[in-house]
Amino acid sequence: MNFRQLEIYRALMIGGSASRAADLLNITQPAVSRAVSELEHRVGFPLFDRVKGRLVPTPEGQLFFRDVGNAFQGLDSLRASAARIRDFGSGSLKIASLAALGSTLVPRAVRRFREVNPHVSITLQILSSSAVRDHVATQQFDIGLAADEVDLSGVDHSLFYSVRAVCVMPADHPLAGKGVIRPADLDKMAFIALSPEDRARARMTESFEAEGVRPHIVVETPASLTVCALALEGVGVGLVNPAAADGFEKRGLVIKPYEPAVYFKSYILFRPDAQRARLVREFTAALNDAARAGPQA
C-alpha cells in the first residue's frame, strides 16, 4: 500500500461517498474506486461492501480506518512540528555574549522577550568574544554578541552597539572629584587595562600616545566587568564599556566621562539563515529595545 491509496481511502471514509472523496481531493470518481480496489488487494480483505452502487464500510474497514486515522494524526503532528521549526526555530533559543553585555543588557532583553514568549526555553552563556564567534559559526548557538576584534567570516553579522568608554575608580581616588577624565590625568597612574588584543584598548593606547601619556598598568584583564570590580577594590582606575559598569555605582564605584572619545563596539552574530526564524528576529528586536532604553529601564 502507498500513501496516496490511504489518503483516498481516508477521504472516502470522511466524505461518505466516492463523489465527495473525489471533490475533496480534486480527482475523478474512477480514480477513487481504482485506489480503493488496489488498497483492498494490498490489505487482503474488503474495506467496503458494494450496496446498490454505494460503498458501505465493512467491520474490518471500520477497524482499519481507526488505525489509518491515528497514522494521519501523527502526520498532522509532523506537519505542525515542521511549521513551528520553520517559523519559530526549535522552540528554544541559545544566546552567547561577551561579559560586558551578558551581565547587563542581555538580561534586560531576555526579560522583554519572555514577556511575549513565556514558553520558549533560553540558554545564555557568557564567553570570550572569540568563543562567542566560534559557537555561532559552528551553529551551537543562534545569536552571539561579540566585541569588534573577532573574525566575522563565516557568520552573518551587523554592528549592534557603539558606546563611549567611561573611566571608573573608587570613591576615595584622587580623580574622583574631576568632572571629566583626560589622558594627562592618567599619566603614571595605577591603571587596570584590558587585554592587549582588545581593539578598544588599542584605541585607548592611541589616545594616551597622542599626548605622550603612559599610565602604570598594574593588572590586565579581558573583561570590563572585572576592571570595574578591581577598581571598586581600589586596585586602580580603568576605562570600561559603560554597560559593564551598570549597577556598580550603587556599590560605590565612581564613573566619569573620558575625553577624547574612545568607543567600545560590538557585533551581533547569527548562524547562517538564523535570522529567518521568528524567535531570533524577536530577540534581536528585544536587544535593540534594551539598548535604546538604557540601564534605567
Rank of each mutant, 00 (worst) to 15 (best):
F3Q: 14
Q5P: 00
Q5F: 15
E7G: 02
I8L: 07
I8H: 00
I8P: 00
R10A: 14
M13F: 00
I14E: 12
G15A: 11
A18Q: 02
A22R: 03
D23F: 02
D23L: 12
N26F: 12
I27T: 14
T28R: 13
Q29V: 15
P30N: 07
P30I: 10
S37I: 09
E38P: 00
E38T: 08
L39Q: 09
E40W: 03
V43K: 05
V43T: 06
F45C: 09
F45T: 05
F45K: 06
L47Y: 04
R50H: 11
R50Y: 02
R50E: 10
G53R: 06
G53T: 04
R54T: 12
V56R: 03
L63F: 07
R66P: 00
D67C: 00
N70S: 14
N70T: 05
A71C: 04
S77E: 15
L78Y: 11
L78T: 01
L78G: 09
R79E: 13
A80F: 03
R84T: 01
I85S: 10
L93A: 04
L93I: 13
K94N: 11
A96P: 09
A96L: 05
L98M: 10
L101G: 06
L105W: 02
L105G: 04
V106H: 05
R108Q: 15
H119Y: 15
T123P: 02
T123A: 02
Q125S: 09
L127S: 02
A131P: 12
V132K: 02
R133G: 13
V136F: 00
A137Q: 11
Q140T: 12
D142S: 03
L145G: 03
A147I: 04
V150H: 02
D151C: 10
G154R: 01
G154I: 02
V155Q: 01
H157G: 06
H157Y: 14
S158I: 12
S158W: 13
L159P: 12
Y161Q: 07
S162N: 10
V163Y: 09
C167Q: 03
V168S: 05
V168A: 04
P170M: 08
A171D: 07
A171N: 07
L175Y: 00
K178F: 01
G179M: 12
V180E: 05
P183L: 13
D185N: 15
L186A: 13
D187Y: 12
S195K: 09
S195N: 11
P196C: 09
A200H: 02
R201K: 08
R203L: 12
T205M: 14
E206P: 00
S207D: 03
F208E: 03
F208Y: 14
E211D: 13
G212F: 10
R214T: 15
P215Q: 12
H216M: 14
V219Q: 10
T221F: 03
A223I: 00
A223S: 14
C228R: 07
C228V: 07
A231N: 05
G234Q: 06
V237E: 06
G238F: 06
V240P: 01
N241Q: 08
P242Q: 06
A243S: 15
A244Q: 10
D246F: 14
E249Y: 01
E249S: 07
K250A: 15
R251E: 11
L253N: 08
P257D: 08
P257N: 08
Y258E: 14
Y263S: 14
F264G: 12
K265W: 01
K265H: 11
I268T: 10
L269P: 13
F270Q: 03
F270R: 07
D273P: 00
D273R: 04
F283V: 09
T284N: 02
A286S: 15
R292F: 14
G294H: 12
